[in-house]
Design a protein around this nucleic acid. Sequence first.
DNA 1: GCGGTAATACTCGGATAAGTCTTGTCCGAGTCCTTATGG
DNA 2: CCATAAGGACTCGGACAAGACTTATCCGAGTATTACCGC
Lengths: 168, 168
Amino acid sequence: MKVNKGVEWAAHACALLAVLPEGWTLSAEALAAYHDVPPAYMAKQMQALSSAGLVVSVRGAAGGYRLARPARDISLKDVFLAVEGAAPSFRCTEVRQNGPCGAAKAQCRKPCGIAASFYAAETAFRDSLAGVTIMDVVASASAASDLGKAAKIATWIQSNASRPGTER
Amino acid sequence: MKVNKGVEWAAHACALLAVLPEGWTLSAEALAAYHDVPPAYMAKQMQALSSAGLVVSVRGAAGGYRLARPARDISLKDVFLAVEGAAPSFRCTEVRQNGPCGAAKAQCRKPCGIAASFYAAETAFRDSLAGVTIMDVVASASAASDLGKAAKIATWIQSNASRPGTER
DNA sequence: GCGGTAATACTCGGATAAGTCTTGTCCGAGTCCTTATGG
DNA sequence: CCATAAGGACTCGGACAAGACTTATCCGAGTATTACCGC
């Protein structure tokens, strides 16, 4: 059981978008450069976030991505589901219906104990992620960094972000 | 994020082993036949359970597998870890150290907020599974089945299980 | 009849191939900005 | 000098390959059974 790498990158991207000035955007390429990951693949994750409605994309020159709603209203669960998909991780193949002692299909309307337990575990997993917002992530990151780094990031944003509708 | 199919099969196999009479064993082939899954692959999962110490294997003619300890002392978490491995599902690549604003390695002794949240979520996942034992699974399964099926299973066991040290 | 022994059949265990999903990449569609042009 | 329109450059979006892991399989190592032989 492994979570896609894209989840990590998408989460970090959201954290960076969260500290952008209002109305500014960052292109997928800039986000990839900031995190030093393959640009095309980062773009793919941003697409997933976009189609899930977590970020809005601005096309054309000086375009890019920005958060669709406040960082406190986006949880890691949202990011996880956007990138990873909503399909359950445990895929019950209904083996109880197989073999010489297989149960009748009519008796299998409820999931078996094993499947139910794994579904419950996954719900616990998602609930745990739902309790952490992008704002929380940003807060913990900034708490661990010093002023010098904050200034560095601000400078980088000034150089690489763009504000559609105006010249840089 | 997907859990291996083998986890499901291993769990069902444990449930079947749990209802065996004391001292009896079931071969990997018999377990595969009961659940109608590929014999060789089922054998692989049983190996994993064996090396994890959840079941004990008896080699030679009339050999097979039996639970290593009472069903109430084996949880789905144990089965999951045995088959899936104990490696964390979220693989932090420390992207915070990358790029133009990368943090120094010395400042990254603690996991970042994103990684910590995913680790916590996985702990919640495993804790949820730890609360369900094989005994619970058997109980829920037998509660959902009728007497006819129970007799069918008992007959099948009589025909396919073996008791080492004695003739069948 | 009984004990020992060798052959045998059956089991697990690890090493070895296909299939599928993740990972990584590319090029086309669409949009905004820039710039040239005419009034 | 200003409005307009065409051109260009930059962006996202989905379609397209390589790699890794899951899934599936095979054959060799080992052990209890079993039959046989000698006593």
